[in-house]
Design a protein around this nucleic acid. Structure first.
Lengths: 334, 334
DNA sequence: TTGAAAGCGCTAACAC
DNA sequence: GTGTTAGCGCTTTCAA
């Protein structure tokens, strides 16, 4: 339905030069004298010419587009990362295609396949399940630039991420230092094979001299505040009664906090809460939340640098893992 | 750096058929007998063949990709809309390229130009400034399918959006009904030409029998909770002292609420607050917020339907405006 | 300094 | 039933 857009051919005909000369001129080749170039550029402007990137991509075998596969863009930390990545890539001249897997492995695979069909130059993926990454490795093995935004040790993949293990360890150490003996890990991803936060918590138990022997894991079946609110009663029913919760997202933590507020469980006296990500809601939610910082800017910056390096490198680069150590932000909930 | 991916040619050579036959077979043409087709499909699978969408796009003159230009993806309502749109489009076989303008007109124009260069089949745009839409109209005039996610009356553009005018009117009517005489509109977009919320508020004043004569506008210089928190003191310093605020995002409202909490201004007795969007934070933030609902699912659904209709129509469609009437969600802040 | 020709991987029109 | 040819809009040799 759209009026055909001008091509090099139209400009060539209007100026009397060949398509080739026009192409060269528009790309400011020094093979073309300034005079000719100006003439051609003027005509291009007059016709409101924009190069057809699809045609260009076909010859160059590069689309200058990267694919971004995220789990759940409603998590503000992931949103922020997506935004930063998009901006940095736009500045570097890359477009971004994006997809959300909604934590379904099938969706993640489909999105990656779609992106590869669309000939993206590389893919940045926040994997749904850290133990199901064969399709990501397969892409890399085929020589395709891929970067994972999650800590995947010994996966042979390039990784830029927060060190969740250390984050969880820090959170639990903090709670132990405050004297807590009955700590719940509120973690929806544990059941689906993402054990690094659990592992970090275990490390804290081992390191602490007088900490608890074990930690209970509760699955909120989702990551929103509503899920946290819904599961709060279950947490407090555990025996012995927990005195502290480490929730793997701030939203979950805020949901628990709201339930406590409404049910006369005081925070942090009756229940201490630590969230994760240091999102805006942790500061402005029902209770100012102690939380584990997610260095979104650093992660985005390094991820973009790395994927571009992978794309532009002539040779295959050895995989590199870059993990940031999160710090704890102590507020009123612990 | 990547090993060349298999093309139709490789499959053709392996099976002894021509490239054309292979192409037809893989697209399940009934011109090819089942036996041949199976043979070819098997070989394609064996070689792990995926069609090169770039090449296909070049011949078909369609990329099956749409561009999504948003202002600020950190606004959870916009995030949610982006997610829904991406999913609906993925289901319809379309990929999504996205960009955030960060409320800069320049960025918005650049993103649209980039998308058009990438030959997206259509663009969905949440415009930064409702009075600066010439570039959007230009795209439409050139026959390019465009859809705006904001109420742009008489723009000649296709529109799917919430009716912000009615939303603001509802919010202010609600406050007037509660007896408020000094109402502040906390609106960062007003200064940059987006007056529909202000207009809606004015309508409410006109319609109310015993309401205030005017409404003060305060610019928070941003849309986050931090901005709301920072501007709260300024609001309360106005004379006569305001008794109610209508904030144009929930995040702003929550920021104001948090400041009140910390400065012994009780809500809603000393200050009533109404937010906008009914995002999760309105329910779980420092104070459960009265707010104006944003029907993200409906907007996304209709937007996707419409952009696909525009793309697939043989003829140019007359522009259509679809506005949803928001409803008010009354909680504890008013 | 400029142009002609080939080719990127695919699809479509037309033969055979 | 299957193959040949041309062409999508651009870039890249290679010639002139």
């Amino acid at each position: 339905m759209s009026r055909p857009r001008p091509r090099l051919k139209e400009i060539a005909e209007a100026t009397g030069f060949s398509v080739n000369t026009v192409s060269l001129a528009l790309r400011a080749s020094d093979r073309i004298p300034e005079k000719t170039r100006d003439l051609i550029m003027q005509e291009a402007e007059r016709q409101n010419y924009f190069p057809n990137q699809i045609a260009r991509s076909l010859t160059k075998r590069a689309t200058h587009t990267i694919g971004l596969v995220l789990t759940d863009i409603m998590n503000p930390t992931i949103t922020l990362t997506a935004r930063s990545i998009e901006r940095l890539l736009a500045n570097a001249g890359y477009g971004v295609m994006f997809a959300t897997s909604d934590n379904s492995l099938e969706n993640e695979k489909k999105a990656m396949a779609r992106f590869q069909s669309h000939q993206v130059d590389g893919i940045i993926v926040y994997p749904t399940n850290r133990s199901k990454i064969r399709h990501i490795q397969a892409a890399r093995d085929a020589g395709f630039p891929v970067l994972a935004l999650a800590d995947l040790p010994d996966s042979g993949l390039d990784v830029v991420a927060m060190d969740d293990r250390v984050g969880a360890e820090t959170a639990v150490m903090h709670l132990i230092a405050r004297g807590h003996k009955n700590i719940v890990l509120l973690d929806g991803a544990f059941g689906s094979g993402n054990t690094e936060k659990f592992d970090g918590a275990q490390n804290a138990l081992k390191r602490a001299k007088n900490g608890p022997a074990s930690i209970a894991v509760v699955d909120p079946k989702g990551n929103s505040s509503a899920h946290g609110y819904a599961v709060a009663a279950t947490i407090l029913k555990q025996t012995p009664r927990p005195t502290a919760v480490y929730a793997t997202t701030d939203a979950l933590a805020i949901g628990v906090a709201r339930w406590c507020l409404e049910n006369e469980v005081s925070i942090p006296e009756d229940l201490a809460i630590v969230g994760c990500d240091n999102s805006e809601v942790s500061e402005f939610g029902s209770t100012p939340l102690t939380t584990i910082n997610y260095a979104s800017d650093e992660v985005s910056q390094k991820a973009v640098e790395r994927i571009i390096a992978l794309i532009e490198s002539e040779t295959r680069l050895a995989p590199k893992t870059l993990l940031f150590e999160p710090r704890i932000v102590v507020r009123k909930s612990s």
